[in-house]
Simulated assay, not measured.
Amino acid sequence: MSVHHILLLLIIGYIVFSIDKKQEYFPVPTVLVLIGITLSPISYFANISITKDLIFHVFLPALLFISAYQFPTMAWKKYKYIIGGLGTIGLLLTIAIFGGFVYLIGNLFIQISIIAALLIAAILSPTDPVSVIAILKKSSSDRNTADIVEGESLLNDGTSIVVFGVLLSMLTQGTTFSLSGFVSEFLLVSLGGVAIGIAFGWLMSKAVHYTDHRQYQVMLSIIVAYGSFYLGELMDVSGVLSTVTAGMMLSYEFGKNIKEDHFRDQLDGFWGIIEPTILSIIFLLIGIQSARYLVFSEWQLAILLFLGSLIVRFLVITAMTQFHSTWKTYMSLRECAVIAWTGIKGTMSVALVLGFEAATDKSSEFISIIFVVILLSLVIQSASVYPLVKRLKGS
């Protein structure tokens, strides 16, 4: 991908984001993906591709840091148990149940092992709040749902990667599943990532006081975003959770002192430019890449898996919240339905399916099924969030 390609994608992305600023409701990621699909047949874009490493090591740390740093500290304090439960136990339950569904339904169409079915579930279970948070806030005066969706997404990205890594090694190396081994590996990778993130975020929140130069303060935030991620990966723990925790820790430390507002202003200004820049490139690339997988014979299976993922997510969220006396006060069945519907597949799912394709010998049709489920989620769910929330909340 050349500099000319990047500049052209940025121009398209900035135009779409400019239109978004003037509209009450405009699902930017969905529009960018659809534009990317229309660009794909053009020969100028024929050699453009997106890889797992590009998403995972270049784009993802920045996007995770932005979401974590901007996530309201008060919302985390208020909903930490719901967010923590849905982002960890809830995701594990979703992968287990949806994996069983993929295995049963998938084998009616193609041959699929239970491990491969669970891997597909792990790929399609993490959620991407970028597409829906702004829409949720516009469609309802109640910020609770948006905060829970955003917080859950930050955690379930890290959880899904850990599960995906364990399952992928089982598939490629032929190892057998061990519950005790899985739990120990999961705890080591997850807690290790959180520990690095806490330490990194705290150190950087103190280091920022040693310079009065705004440029250096912004540079320190870049070190937090990428340094915590790469350090986590270097230590064989979750780089995603390291970055998320570091971002939230930095925000928490700044939030303790009102004098830190000028730091926030500088960081918000910088990352407020970086976020739409990254999103413009990544969603256009997702559209261009996914267009190459749309011609295949198992569309019926892809549609069934898309519907199944929604049903399983709704059932898990409902079961975890409606039978808990405290959580039930925050979330009615309507809120459960909204949160289930806004669990849109996005950047993380694309990164995982590309990693899955690179590490296995699965046919292009197999990968196409997963890509189509992601596209259906991005397009259908994003486009219908606004009318759905307005209808369910009666506002």
Rank of each mutant, 00 (worst) to 15 (best):
M1H: 11
S2F: 00
S2Y: 01
H4A: 15
H5E: 13
H5S: 14
H5C: 08
I6S: 14
L9P: 11
L10D: 07
L10H: 02
I12S: 12
G13Q: 12
Y14L: 14
S18F: 04
S18T: 03
D20S: 15
K21W: 08
K22R: 09
K22C: 00
F26E: 05
T30P: 01
V31T: 03
L34P: 12
L34F: 05
T38C: 15
T38G: 15
S40W: 08
P41T: 06
I42C: 06
F45S: 01
N47K: 03
N47I: 02
N47G: 14
I50G: 08
I55H: 05
H57C: 05
V58G: 03
V58W: 11
L60T: 11
L60N: 11
L60A: 14
P61A: 07
L63C: 08
S67K: 11
Y69K: 10
T73H: 12
T73S: 05
M74F: 09
Y79Q: 08
K80T: 07
F98M: 06
I112V: 14
I112F: 07
I115Q: 10
L118S: 11
A121N: 10
A122V: 10
A122Y: 10
P126G: 11
T127I: 13
D128G: 13
V132S: 11
I133Q: 13
A134Q: 13
K138L: 10
N144A: 11
A146N: 05
D147P: 07
N156S: 02
S160M: 03
V166Q: 12
L167M: 07
L168D: 04
G181Q: 08
L191M: 05
G192P: 00
F200H: 01
W202V: 12
L203H: 02
S205T: 01
V208W: 01
Y216I: 15
Q217H: 09
V218D: 04
V218N: 08
I222Y: 09
I222S: 07
V224T: 01
V224A: 02
Y226H: 01
Y230L: 03
L231V: 05
L231I: 13
G232K: 07
E233A: 03
M235D: 00
D236S: 14
S238A: 01
S242Q: 03
T243S: 06
T243Y: 03
T245C: 06
A246S: 04
M249L: 08
M249N: 05
K256V: 08
I258W: 09
D261W: 09
H262Q: 04
R264I: 02
R264S: 04
R264Y: 00
I274C: 06
E275M: 12
E275N: 05
G287E: 02
A291D: 04
L294D: 09
F296D: 08
S297R: 09
E298H: 15
E298R: 12
Q300G: 15
L305R: 10
I311T: 13
V312I: 14
R313N: 05
F314N: 07
V316I: 13
V316C: 07
T318H: 12
A319I: 13
M320P: 12
T329M: 09
Y330F: 10
S332R: 01
S332D: 02
V338G: 07
A340E: 00
T342F: 10
T347E: 08
M348D: 12
S349K: 02
V350T: 05
L354G: 04
F356A: 09
T360D: 03
F366P: 00
I367Y: 05
F371T: 01
I374N: 06
S377Y: 08
L378Q: 03
Q381R: 09
S382I: 10
S384G: 11
